[in-house]
Nucleic acid binder design. Structure first.
Ligand SMILES: [Mn+2]
Ligand SMILES: [Mn+2]
Ligand SMILES: [Mn+2]
Ligand SMILES: [Mn+2]
Lengths: 214, 214
DNA sequence: AAAATAATTTAGACAAGTCTAAATTATTAA
DNA sequence: TTAATAATTTAGACTTGTCTAAATTATTTT
């Protein structure tokens, strides 16, 4: 039905779509998939032919409901496999993403269904991202970006937006993993920083830029 | 390193190699992979270039030690995934093979290692086939083909050689699964048949031809 | 409103893997 | 041992996904 490559394109387009409803630009897809713009144009035409995206020459693409459903089914598999790798096989949270990139393309709805049941129908993956349900519905929590918090107080780290191993390792070394409780004790409007305390350790400074990734 | 296609060729050549040390013929590989002889010749040249097989024009191939190691590592993954699918995800033994054909190509030795540990270091897969160890060593039991048994008596079904869903379903309906105890109560030299009793049921007739698949 | 710059698409090529049809080599039969 | 048959390889073509370089269209700058 859909090839591994098509699935990766649709996933990238979907991710670039969420948050803003503008068209996704060729260059953005190329950047996201580390491929050339020429290749993206070629693939976009194929996906358009299959009614997975709406394509307007020189103006990027919009993903269709059909394409979105495919993307969400791959994302569902990806996140379920990440839970499996971490909970069942005891991988660390910075190691699961690359493996899930391969496992997500094993094409069996029955497998996904049974994996889901075995894992106890998890709602979030190890990075705090919600796992879409069978119908492609995403039940998002009231998660908020650290950079958007305006009140001091206690918070729970529910997830991260940057999935790179180096960043995840950095956070873990600081003692910050999903579920961690931390307090914002000081916010500085001028130098774009906040001071936070977590897990009985000494106060630490976080730049707003970093905070955006929460 | 090796592509999925190369891995499938090496697996097929390995399987066709075991039992006799003649060269594996182009047509045998083509038959096994449901592909044309022309395609096999092309791929054989590539594998020969990579020193995975020794190729003599018009006379088939012999798998090298290097090629055999790759094949055994894929077969190890395949059988471990089959155990996982059956033991952990509760698939039936006739459903696991096709899924394992996809999962076996997920390329991570660490994943294989952890899966092995999680499953409790199984030595045989759901069809009774031995799981090669990390070094590519195959610890075969003293299994013997049903067609080669000459004495009446009690036996344990340790595995099957035909993995097709239809055959596996047929056996299960008869009450025969790995671990089943059965007795050979009569052997007929002339019409190539034997009468066996299993699991408290009435005697059943098995043709020698069928017996060969055990 | 042109000119300069940036983004996108097209043209043409390549690698992997596949196919059919034709040519070649091996095997079997006469 | 030659002729017929069977198996294998080569030739040439096709698909998917990719690339670079050139042409086209959009956007910014002046
Ligand atoms: Mn991930
Ligand atoms: Mn994740
Ligand atoms: Mn199998
Ligand atoms: Mn098996």
């Amino acid at each position: 039905m859909t090839t591994t490559t098509e699935e990766n394109y649709l996933k990238a387009i979907y991710h670039l779509s969420t948050g803003n409803q503008d068209s996704v630009l060729t260059s953005a897809i190329a950047g996201s998939l580390s491929t050339s713009s020429a290749s993206v144009t070629d693939m976009i035409k194929k996906l358009s032919e299959k009614n997975m995206v709406e394509y307007e020459r020189y103006h990027g693409v919009k993903i269709t409901r059909k394409g979105e459903k495919v993307a969400l089914s791959i994302i569902r598999r990806h996140r379920l496999w990440e839970v499996f790798l971490m909970d069942t096989l005891k991988f660390k949270w910075d190691e699961v993403h690359d493996l899930a990139e391969e496992l997500e393309h094993v094409s069996s709805d029955e497998l996904t269904k049974r994996l889901d049941a075995f894992l106890g129908f998890p709602k979030f993956d190890p990075h705090g991202d919600p796992i879409p349900d069978t119908n492609g519905k995403v039940h998002s929590n009231g998660q908020v970006l650290l950079s958007e918090i305006t009140k001091k107080g206690k918070y729970i780290l529910s997830g991260v937006n940057d999935h790179s191993p180096s960043f995840l390792q950095y956070l873990e070394k600081k003692g910050l993993i999903p579920g961690s409780i931390f307090s914002i004790v000081e916010m500085d409007e001028f130098d774009n920083s906040m001071q936070i305390i977590f897990s009985n350790k000494s106060p630490s400074l976080l730049a707003k830029k970093l905070a955006k990734t929460f």
